[in-house]
């Protein structure tokens, strides 16, 4: 085995940095949309709204039960064949859509568990002082559920950042797509992929650091 070509790896860094914003943007958009959707699904599940509850269960079952890659191909290659208005769908949109639906299915369940986990007696206390259900949710239940849900939600966010690399299979040139192109040109596959691996690793570690700080803040009320 020959020695690693470090100069090539260093030279690759500024090239890959140009594609970092797209990777981060897809992850951020996917996470924001997935959070909104997951909260909605979780509330439907907690309240057990008839009709919607069944639809939600089916949604969660499908998007948890099939591979993300299959879902992405379905949105990008499959749907435009049956839904005319989707012919214009581009790889980035399809990726964000796939990430949103896929991860919302997982996140809905952990948000639901966090809501259900808030001590029932506090709910009664809030009702006893005359709060409405909305006030109870906003002021008492959701802030406490957030604290419980944050570690798992951050885990999904980390997973989602890495899952954006699948966009390259839809022809999107993001971090992974750019690396693939560079490697194909130079034949230095090991150097190229170890460099991009470090990219993802660093992003995730930065995020983990943010997570620790956030959790410390959220736990302030629970220190004895």
């Amino acid at each position: 085995m020959s020695v690693l070509d470090f100069d090539y790896m260093v030279g690759l860094v500024p090239i890959l940095l140009r594609y970092l914003p797209l990777t981060l943007a897809m992850a951020a958009a996917g996470m924001a949309l997935a959070l909104v959707l997951a909260c909605g699904l979780a509330v439907i599940r907690v309240l057990g709204i008839p009709g919607l509850n069944g639809v939600t269960l089916l949604f969660i079952s499908f998007f948890r039960g099939t591979p993300l890659l299959v879902q992405l191909f379905l949105f990008y290659y499959g749907l435009p064949q049956v839904l005319a208005f989707l012919t214009q769908i581009d790889g980035i949109t399809a990726t964000i859509m796939g990430l949103t639906l896929h991860f919302a299915a997982y996140m809905a369940e952990s948000i639901r568990a966090a809501i259900v986990g808030v001590d029932r007696s506090q709910t009664e206390a809030a009702l006893s002082i005359g709060m409405t259900n909305g006030q109870l949710m906003r002021r008492i239940v959701l802030p406490q559920a957030t604290r419980v849900a944050v570690p798992t939600l951050m885990n999904y966010f980390i997973d989602m950042i890495k899952a954006t690399s699948l966009a390259f299979t839809l022809g999107v040139t993001e971090l992974m797509g750019a690396t693939q192109k560079e490697a194909a040109g130079s034949f230095l596959y090991f150097e190229a992929f170890i460099t991009v691996a470090v990219f993802y690793w660093v992003i995730v570690e930065l995020l983990a650091w943010c997570q620790r700080r956030l959790e410390t803040r959220l736990n302030e009320a629970y220190r004895r």
Binding site: Q122, A125, Q144, A221
Partner: peptide, 8 residues
Amino acid sequence: NYALFANK
């Protein structure tokens, strides 16, 4: 069991 709001 007091039922204080734990986040307040």
